[in-house]
């Protein structure tokens, strides 16, 4: 068994994964995406499985596609990375599979974006289709703010900020739910709480253990399966008595989950990757 881990940096999560591999006596290579050179014409690796922990969506997606085309199994596979790394693709897939999401639209010019925002009615949330950690996400409360924002995005943003991903703001109860799915099981889940409307861990949200109900279990597993399955963190908002999925992360950080619940997430990830390798 030859196991590789694609990494950008070694964070808490990667250290835990290394420890879990060592504890199981599994030999592995650390593949740094900064150092890797992939020759398309020559499969110069001989891995049974590569676990992707790269921090960069571009690098993850390109490397996973090459590995998969070489016949190397990866967790997650490139199709899952492709869908989950882009909120527009994720939304299209989830909605088509009947997963409840907030009302969401996409438009490609400032004028059509404003029209879409007015039609949806305020407040709305604008998100970059590719992005994470709550970065560059804006809540827009009125037309004046919307006009300024779309103009700024168009003028100052890189080209992908001219895809205006527009979502109805959900007046959630000061928290969201993060569910970690590994294969066909729920590994663990937490509430992420914040006085700010963005409840990302990287924004300083605090966590509280969440007891998974059958409704959340069913929704999370169905959402994970819809995007192709694997190791996936499903972000869910509470909208009064309904649950709405907002996104699915395919290389989830799990420090907060680990510290809050004590669950051996790294161990579960490694065991799952081994299962995939043996399939």
């Amino acid at each position: 068994m030859k196991f590789g881990i694609l990494v950008s940096y070694v964070r808490f999560e990667e250290k835990k994964i290394f420890e879990a591999l060592q504890a199981r006596n599994i030999k592995f290579d650390k593949i740094y995406d900064n150092e890797i050179i992939l020759d398309y014409q020559r499969d110069n690796t001989s891995y049974d499985l590569i676990l992707d922990r790269s921090i960069s969506h571009t690098r993850s997606l390109q490397c996973l596609k090459i590995f998969n085309d070489w016949g190397i199994k990866t967790v997650n596979n490139w199709k899952v990375a492709n869908i989950c790394g882009d909120k527009s693709l994720t939304t299209s897939v989830l909605v088509s599979k009947g997963i409840p999401m907030p009302h969401t639209m996409i438009a490609y010019s400032p004028e059509s974006a404003l029209k879409a925002i007015e039609e949806m009615d305020y407040p709305v949330v604008l998100k970059p289709a590719i992005g994470s950690w709550g970065r560059l996400i804006s809540k827009v409360n009125d037309r004046e703010a919307a006009e300024g924002l779309v103009e700024h995005k168009k003028t100052l943003g890189t080209y992908h900020h001219s895809s205006f991903y527009i979502q109805k703001y959900i007046d959630k109860p000061g928290r969201d739910i993060r569910v970690l799915v590994i294969g066909d099981k729920i590994a663990t889940a937490i509430y992420r709480k914040s006085s700010h409307w963005l409840t990302n861990a990287s924004r300083g949200a605090t966590a509280e253990a969440f007891t998974v109900t059958s409704e959340i279990e069913e929704l999370s597993l169905k959402a994970a399966e819809a995007v192709g399955g694997g190791i996936l963190a499903v972000d869910i908002l509470e909208d009064k008595d309904k649950y709405l999925v907002i996104e699915i992360n395919y290389t989830p950080e799990f420090k907060l989950l680990h510290e809050t619940t004590g669950v051996d997430i790294a161990g579960m990830m490694v065991d799952y990757a081994m299962e995939v390798a043996k399939k």
Binding site: S56, I130, G131, W133, R135, A233, N249, P252
Partner: peptide, 10 residues
């Protein structure tokens, strides 16, 4: 430490 890039994330 590297500067955060736009496509970085979890």
């Amino acid at each position: 430490a590297p500067k955060e890039e736009e496509d970085w994330g979890e």
